[in-house]
Each structure stands twice: as C-alpha cells, then as structure tokens.
Amino acid sequence: MSPQTVFAPWDDPHEKPLIQFRNVTKRFGDFTAVDNIELDIFEREFFALLGPSGCGKTTLMRMLAGFETPTEGTILLDGKDIAPIPPNRRATNMMFQSYALFPHLTVRDNIAFGLKRERRPKPEIDARVDEMLRLVQLQKFATRKPHQISGGQRQRVALARCLAKAPKLLLLDEPLGALDKKLREETQFELMDIQEKTGTTFVIVTHDQEEAMTVASRVAVMDHGKLVQVATPDVIYELPSSTYVADFIGDVNILEGRITGQDDDRVEIAWAEDQPSIHAKARVALAPGSTAYFAIRPEKIAISATRPETAPNAVTGKVLDIAYLGNISTYHVELPGGQVIKAQSTNTDRMAAREFTWDDTVWLGWSDAAGVVLER
C-alpha cells in the first residue's frame, strides 16, 4: 500500500466486510454483556475494541474466537455463520495477555507448535518458522527458552506463533498489558509494522486509549455492552459523538450550558453566571433554550498574560495548579465563579524561562471551531 493510498474500506459501499456482527446479544443470566451489536470489520484492518472493564469488549472477542456463543444474532466471517464452527477449526487465532508460551520449549518450537499439531511436513514447518522468526526479528534467539528472553521478546514469540498458521483474523486480548510503558510504546509500532507486512486482520481489545489511538485504523468505543461510537482515531478524538466518548478519550473540558442563539452553524451557549457566552460551531441544529455540552481539549486553549484580541472566546482566571509533563504543561485555571478549565502549552523553553506560575492571573482564549457542541 503506497503512502498516497488512503485505507478506508468502510467508506466503500462495494467492499464486503470480513466480519459482520448482526444484532448480536450475549447474556449471562440476567446480565446483558453485549447488547444488540451491529458492526462490520474489514480485511487488513487493525481494529480496536476500547472501553472500561465490564463494557463487553472481551465478550465480543470471545464470541469471535468461539469461546462464547451469542444469545441472539449472527456473527459472519467471510460471509459464513461461524456459530457451528468450533474454536480450533475457525480461521482465527487468539493471543492472550499472558502469552501462554510453553516454558520447556525453545522459541522455535513454541512458534512451530500449532503447525506440528496439524502434522504438516517438516520442511514446510521449518520454512514457515524461519519466516516468522525473520518477521519478528528473533532469529538469534531461536534456541532460547522463554525465561531466557525479555518480556517484549516473549510478546513477539507469542505473536509469531499466532501468525504461523496464517489466520484470516488475529485476536489480541490486552497483548501489551504486561509490558512497561516505554516498551509498550515501542511494541505498538512493531505490531503495526507486522500487521501491515502480513496483511492479517487484527482485532485488539484494550482499555488503554493511547494504545488504541496509536495502532488502530478504526476504534469502537463501548459502554455497558453497546457501541457508543465507531470511527477512525482522529474522528473519535476531534469529533466525539457524546460527552462519554469525549471524556473517555484523552483530556477534555466539558462545559454544560444552554443554547441562547443560533445562526446557521454557529451557536451561543450561556454556561456560567458573569461569564461571556461561548461562541462555537455546531454540527447539528439545537433548539433555543436546550441543554448543550461544549467539549474542548486543553491543547486547543491558548493561555496568555493579556486578553487575546482575536479569539472569539476569552475568559480570565487564576492558575490553581500546574502539571508538568516534560514536553507539555497543563494549567488548571480557576475562574471567578469557581469553574476550573484546563489549558495546555508546549514547553519550548526551559523551566526557568516559563511565563506562568501558581496564583498568576491569566487569560484563556479559543476559536469558535476549537471545541465540539454535544447534545448529551
């Protein structure tokens, strides 16, 4: 796939999905874990199921793998209902968080395990294992046991073992959860590279927003068994469909108010006593007097010592707290009415040269297109 090619099969009405969830519900007694899901996943996608614990994402994956069966609805793989097919006969493979490597087998034998179970010819197995070792760059570690390699290398062995049988679909259940933050970030890019090289469809379950936003072509945000929004990472971040999605993905200010005026796509939102109305662009028509929520990311808000002259929105307050994160600083600014707004700035200067500190009076400004207006 060339850099100029835009990979977006979900926007092409002629593309047929690899996976189709059709009105899929899963109940455990009185508890509904997955609630009437409709979802298409396409070939070569790196698809992320994202949500807090108990939202239904793992149950959805286990139904794909064959470890659970839907209470209602149908799951199609390549157009065929997979319900009657046992897990070991599905064109899928699953990689668990624990990796589940055999401690007594070498790296090579761990990768070859599934192929040997299928009684494939030895030359074919050897060639395929060599190919997998090259793919995950572990040729030098082929004769080592799992305890003799690092956590990141064990993760790659588990991935190679899953890919050795060339599944149409690889399911990854919190695959990087056991790694430390720095190694996890490095491994995310390795996963993306391997997925692109093999062309295998990956579906990953994670509660780590950053991980989902980094690796996935599309993200499905789940809550209480339902799909709340399914979109590309940039749309999920910039145009969340609800306050739940806005709040779950990244850092955000959510200001509640009511619509006091609308002119075409521009609205005015009254949100706090003694504060000017928010001027914003809205994607939907909102009735005057109706409740609205204005969500704006901290990095979209400029912080300055004087009132910004050109910003359509400007408020003043006092620096209550500062979170220094190295590359950026987040300022918690308390307004006269007690509301707190977070603004971020890039730390282009060293600490001693920074402009603002605790208790400083500052101005916050943002454009009318910086945030998103939501109904719920």
Rank of each mutant, 00 (worst) to 15 (best):
N36T: 13
E38K: 11
L39Q: 01
D40C: 10
I41N: 10
I41G: 07
F42L: 05
R44I: 00
F46Q: 01
A48T: 07
A48F: 10
L49D: 01
L50V: 11
L50Q: 01
G51T: 08
P52R: 09
S53R: 11
S53K: 10
T58R: 06
M61Y: 00
M61W: 00
L64V: 04
A65V: 09
P70I: 01
T71A: 14
D78N: 12
G79V: 08
K80G: 05
D81R: 06
I82L: 09
P84K: 03
I85A: 02
I85C: 03
P86M: 08
P87E: 07
R90Y: 09
T92G: 07
T92V: 05
N93Y: 09
M94I: 15
F96A: 11
F96Q: 13
L101D: 02
L101E: 02
F102V: 08
H104W: 00
L105W: 08
L105I: 04
V107Y: 00
V107F: 00
V107N: 03
D109C: 05
D109I: 10
D109R: 15
N110I: 01
F113Y: 13
R117V: 12
E118F: 05
R120N: 07
R120F: 10
P121R: 06
E124K: 05
A127F: 10
A127H: 14
R128A: 04
R128M: 07
V129R: 15
D130N: 15
D130H: 15
E131W: 15
M132A: 07
R134Y: 01
R134T: 15
R134W: 00
L135Q: 13
Q137N: 14
Q137V: 09
Q139N: 14
K140D: 14
T143E: 15
T143A: 15
T143G: 13
T143M: 11
P146Y: 00
P146H: 04
H147C: 06
Q148P: 10
I149L: 04
S150I: 02
G152K: 04
G152M: 04
Q153R: 10
Q155H: 07
R156L: 05
R156Q: 08
V157Q: 09
V157T: 05
A158Y: 09
A158K: 13
A160C: 12
R161A: 00
L163K: 09
A164N: 14
K165Q: 12
K165C: 15
P167L: 08
K168F: 00
L169C: 02
L171R: 06
L171S: 07
E174V: 05
E174W: 00
P175Y: 02
L176F: 10
A178G: 03
K181S: 12
L183G: 11
